[in-house]
Design a protein around this nucleic acid. Structure first.
Lengths: 140, 140
DNA sequence: ATTATATGCTTGTACATGCAAGTATTAATG
DNA sequence: CATTAATACTTGCATGTACAAGCATATAAT
C-alpha cells in the first residue's frame, strides 16, 4: 500500500469531500423532477416553515455564507417561489403560493433521495453515518 | 422539532456537504504554509508516488472528473511542480525537482490537518468516521 | 485499407460557494 | 446630538468542480 493511499483513504477531508460530491450527484438526480438542485430545496423548505426568516437565519441553519443565501434566494425570487421584504436593515423572505403548491413534490424528491442512498448503503449504515456526520459537523 | 430540522439533520446529502465544507476550510488553513489548496496537495502526492500517471488514473483515485484533473494539473505545471508528456493519446504527469523538494513541507501540512480535526473530534471518533465515510463513498 | 467506433484528454460554459469590500441601518459612546 | 462602532445584507471577484462538446489517437469492422 502506497503512502498516498493512506493519505487519501484515511483523510477525513478527502473522504468526506468525495462522499459529498457523490451524494450531490445523487441528490441532483432526485430533484430533477422539480427542476431545482437540492440546495434550493432546503432553502425553500426552511422559508416555508419559517416565514420572515432572514438571510443570517438561513445562513446559520444551512451552514452557508450569508452571501450564498442572497444568491440562492435571488434565483428563487426570479422563479416566484419566494419574495423578500426589507424592514430596517433586516431582510425577510416569504413563501409564495407557488411554493406552497410545489411543496408536496419537493418532499417527494426528498423521500426518493433518502430511498436511493438507503438502498445503496443499507438503512442502518446510512442512519449511523448521518448521525456521526451531523455530530462532527456541529463540532467543527 | 420542525420538519425542516429533520430534513436537514437527517439528510446525508446535507450533513455530508456541510461537513465537507467545514473540513475544506480547515484543510485550506492547514495548507496555507505551502501556498496550495488541499486538492492540489493530493494531486501532487499521487503524481510523486506514481510518476507517469495519467489524467484518467488520477481521476479514478481522486474521484474527480478528468477535466478537473486537467485544470488542476495545468496550474501545477505553471508552478513548475510537475510536467506533462504526451505519448499517443495518453498524457503522463511527472514530478519535478521542485516538487520533490516541496514534499516534506507538504506532508507536514497533512499531519497538521489530521492533528487539527483529531483534536476537535477525538482520534477514535475521527477514525470511525473516516472509515465509514470511505466505505460509503466507495459504494455510491 | 478505409471507414466506423471507442478511448483519452482538453476546452467552453455554467454553477455553488466563500471571502473581501461596499452600503445601509442600528447601537454605543463621547 | 454627533460621531464612531457594530450589525445585516449585497456585490465583485476568485475558485473548484462537472457536463457537454470537441479533438486526437487507437481499435474494430467491413
Amino acid at each position: 500500500m502506497k503512502k498516498s493511499d493512506k493519505y487519501l483513504s484515511k483523510c477525513l477531508y478527502f473522504t468526506s469531500n468525495a462522499l459529498a460530491r457523490k451524494l450531490t450527484k445523487l441528490a441532483e438526480q432526485a430533484f430533477t423532477p422539480i427542476g431545482l438542485s437540492p440546495s434550493y430545496a432546503f432553502l425553500l423548505l426552511l422559508i416555508h416553515e419559517n416565514p420572515k426568516i432572514t438571510p443570517s437565519g438561513l445562513s446559520k441553519q444551512l451552514d452557508l455564507d450569508p452571501s450564498t443565501i442572497t444568491r440562492l434566494a435571488d434565483k428563487m425570487i426570479l422563479r416566484s417561489l419566494i419574495t423578500k421584504e426589507k424592514k430596517g436593515k433586516m431582510m425577510h423572505f416569504l413563501p409564495t403560493e407557488d411554493l406552497t403548491m410545489l411543496l408536496p413534490d419537493l418532499e417527494k424528491c426528498w423521500y426518493d433521495l433518502k430511498e436511493k442512498y438507503d438502498k445503496i448503503l443499507g438503512v442502518e449504515s446510512a442512519d449511523v453515518l448521518v448521525e456521526l456526520t451531523f455530530e462532527a459537523s456541529k463540532k467543527i
